[in-house]
């Protein structure tokens, strides 16, 4: 039995315009390189990683908003191509990172939520569509009163829940969430997390959650993938990857997560964040040779700069590292 969502060797490169009048080779951003993972129905995969490591690009390709340079996205054994039919478009829904950009500024939210139902021919007639919208809006903890407002008249947290409602309305098989809780307060965050956990239990959705909130990923995910500079460096059960990672990058990442420290005496200082060689985030334009993490890695040896480590199985996780911990 294969997984519901099957991603194989996904690669997306962006070719940049050449500087004027120079005969140099075109420069290429390696946004996503050879990313593979599976997500079963009813399962949540968390994708974590540094800003700019390609998470949003993966999400856009999954949702058919961008076309992969190579690699495949298959749903229930059937390959979905870049240019999707509306019917295929409905199957993988993306909830984008910036809820404010997701809505037309001049149309009410009622219109914004009604539109996808009409496009996909769901709900017979206006009254039934209205009922579906009302039910969904309440499911995400808002009231129908919000629907008569314009996007600019709602707070970030309110909008974040409405984008989620809009995606769920068309009954997708896969839900891809790009930073779904980043702009929410702790209580609303809890509502969204509980909502997503309930969805997972109630439906056969496969959910991909992109987040940099490790706390949230731990709560939501069955499995987790860690990306670094376009590649998956560790993949496995969330309980392993997000607690005792084997790859040095996720180890650094977990060590950088601030822990509440109300016992601190006196003002905070820059030195409090000096822990470890954090180092420069490398450029996706010119990824370092061998293992892309080697310029920042405390465990790096000669081989790390020379050869890219392959992904290998280590106990219950897959790790791409020459010297896993």
């Amino acid at each position: 039995m294969s997984a519901l969502l099957d991603v194989r060797g996904l690669t997306r490169r962006f070719t940049l315009p050449r500087p004027f009048g120079r005969r140099t080779a075109p420069r290429v951003v390696h946004a996503v390189e050879d990313v593979s993972f599976e997500v079963a129905a009813g399962e949540v995969l968390a994708v974590v990683g540094e800003s700019g490591c390609g998470k949003t690009t993966v999400a856009r390709v999954l949702a058919g908003l961008d076309t992969a340079t190579s690699g495949t996205v298959a749903l229930a054994g059937r390959e979905l191509t870049g240019g999707r039919t509306p019917a295929d478009q409905r199957l993988i829904q993306l909830v984008t990172q910036n809820p404010r950009a997701a809505f037309n500024r001049r149309r009410t939210l009622r219109h914004a939520l009604d539109q996808p139902l009409r496009v996909h021919g769901l709900g017979a007639g206006r009254a039934e569509r209205d009922a579906l919208v009302a039910e969904m809006v309440e499911r995400v903890g808002l009231s129908t009163e919000h629907l008569d407002r314009l996007p600019g008249e709602l707070s970030g947290g309110e909008l974040a829940r409405l984008v989620l409602a809009r995606a769920l309305l068309v009954r997708p098989r896969v839900l891809v969430l790009d930073e779904p809780t980043a702009s929410l307060d702790a209580s609303v965050k809890a509502t969204v997390v509980d909502l997503l956990l309930r969805l997972r239990a109630e439906s056969d959705l496969a959910i991909v959650v992109i987040t940099h909130e490790i706390d949230i990923a731990r709560r939501l995910a069955d499995r987790a993938a860690v990306m670094y500079l376009g590649r998956v460096v560790e993949l496995g059960p969330a309980a392993s990857v997000l607690a005792r990672p084997r790859h040095p990058y996720p180890r650094l990442l977990l060590a950088s997560v601030p822990v509440p420290d109300p016992e601190r005496i006196g003002p905070a200082s820059a030195a409090d964040f000096g822990a470890g060689a954090i180092g420069e985030v490398p450029s996706a334009l010119d990824p370092p040779s061998g293992c892309a993490f080697h310029p920042r890695c405390a465990l790096a040896t000669e081989v790390c700069a020379e050869r890219r480590p392959a992904r290998e199985v280590l106990d219950d996780v897959e790790v791409a590292c020459h010297h896993p911990g």
Partner: peptide
């Protein structure tokens, strides 16, 4: 919108 390692860098700059 930043992950933990980059967030630490920005907080360090601000402090």
């Amino acid at each position: 919108t930043l992950d933990a390692t980059v967030q630490a860098q920005v907080l360090r700059l601000l402090l």
